[in-house]
Design a protein around this nucleic acid. Sequence first.
RNA 1: GGCGUCGUAGCCAAGUGGCUAAGGCAACGGAUUGCAAAUCCGUCACGCGUGGGUUCAACUCCCACCGACGCCUCCA
Length: 575
Amino acid sequence: MPIRIYSTLTRQKEEFQTVEPGKVSMYLCGPTVYKPAHIGHMVGPVIFDTIKRYLAYSGYQVTWVVNITDVDDKLIVKANELGTTVEALARKMTEDYLDNLRTLGVDGIDHMPYATQYIAEMQEIIAGLIEKGYAYPLNGDVYFECTKDADYGKLSGRNLTEMLAGTRAETRDGKHNPADFALWKGSKPGEPAWDSPWGPGRPGWHIECSAMARKLLGDTIDIHGGGLDLMFPHHENELAQSESCTGKPFARYWLHNGLLRKSSGGKIGGDHSRHGDARSSVAELVRVQSDEASSSPVRSLTTSATNSTDMMAEKQAQEEQKLAGSKGAESVKTAVFAKFDPETVRFFLMATHYRSPVDFGDDRLEETAKSIDGFYRLIESFTRVTGQDFYALPTPRTRAEAVGWDSVPTKVGAETVVAETNSNVGTESQPTFEAELVVLRTRFLDAMDDDFNTGAAVGALFDLRKTLNGFITDHKLETDGKSNAAAVTTLIRGVTLFKELSNLLGVFLKPIAKKASSGADDEFVNGLMQLLITLRADVRKAKQFEIADKIRQGLTELKVTLEDRPDGTIWRRDV
RNA sequence: GGCGUCGUAGCCAAGUGGCUAAGGCAACGGAUUGCAAAUCCGUCACGCGUGGGUUCAACUCCCACCGACGCCUCCA
């Protein structure tokens, strides 16, 4: 089954065909780094990280670029407010952004270009556009003339003449028409500026992405992504500039992810910041200034948190917590990661369709946390039965490597081959189980092929969990595993499949610290728990269930769950 | 006002012009357990906002209406 992708440009799903066979170039609009990242900023990266994982799994060599906008009006304003420099603020906020991406397991980004390092490339495009008559200088600025671009508006479905008809406003500043946007902005004194043929200034927002995408990925890229809110004007303008400049299609597929909404309503990270909420800067102010003071401008957020500034970090957290009460979007760290495991957040994002808007709130995440708990139970069960570390299981990284799944087509570049058949499928030992695995695997991959339908894929994952648990139950592997080597081998095969598929979504890649079961990082706690469990086992043996239940009840109140299994009691801390 | 998206069970959420409309949470039965927990089995939308239309057949296509939302403002 070929991969199909919905493109905003054509408003339909299209078969995925890359510019270069076997290779994919992918560009995602990154953040303007003027304040700490909020959860909304994480959506695109998580989705495209998953897309990259899947394309790589499908045999493509993927190059993924996410830009950092480190020069912009907002940055200038905010830096002035904080009494710091644009560079320092940008560096700080970039580190925060990256830190959060790492936390969410987004590790597939190949290049993170900074806009300020591509000024020459931007100027080259601007000069070209002027030369071709698509742009005109004006009092130190340079504007793109929308009316010169015949198909301007094709991405967002806007009609330029209608747009212009709607605006009666005078064209300010001598622009040829109101829709014209800045490619280059002449600088005012004190603002960051670069020399240019049109005078000192800085690039417009849209040109940054055009230049970086072109420089790093070429004139035509395969996939261009971003939030739905960027479709107009940002992507429209990017497209207009790039195609006017090169005369080639800018991107083959335009992917737009839906935006997060607060459960209570309203978009996360909405327009509140426009009202100059000085309060929202308090936390950053503390942070930036403390770094400046230390005369070590390259210190990162992470390093500053590791030394003796714990108190300060706590203070910052408190400040940020206050923001929660105000209207601005909260930073991911304080609003989300403080309460939920990043894996829960990622799974939540995977459980719905990337193009849909999603209500984001604590109750939703709590539900997700409950729903994925069973996966951790399965992983623990697997380890008990096989003695193997789930996270160390070798798994195929591409469909081509995943041999043995009868008649599952394997995508290699542009051509389709069929994986070799496996003699194990359909043997008398586990016919139904093996067959079920094949069906579930196909369901999962078909869903992903269909415009990266992670929601449907997650459904297959839940069914796979049930199938695996059922196999363990049916064969009594928790108790008789040692005497049934064949079944254990089959289980390993099934669990390996589960790992292979779930890893494509970027989940269950590594152990979750908080989910430590029957073993805390603290030996003292471990010792106490073992003591309690032993004592409780003794009184249970003596049928003194009241005492046993009292112990269990007391532990429950401490958020510790006991499970009395046939082969002993295990405990788990629910954080 | 212009452009666009969406409305599937108590909640969240996939999906399809025609077999029994995924999955999760919650709930309820049963197995298991001293009781729990975990796990397994079972139940849980004769219907997919409302009203029309096209069709042999629509929840899926078309129209209208109601409702929610997004963009049109350098927000991922």
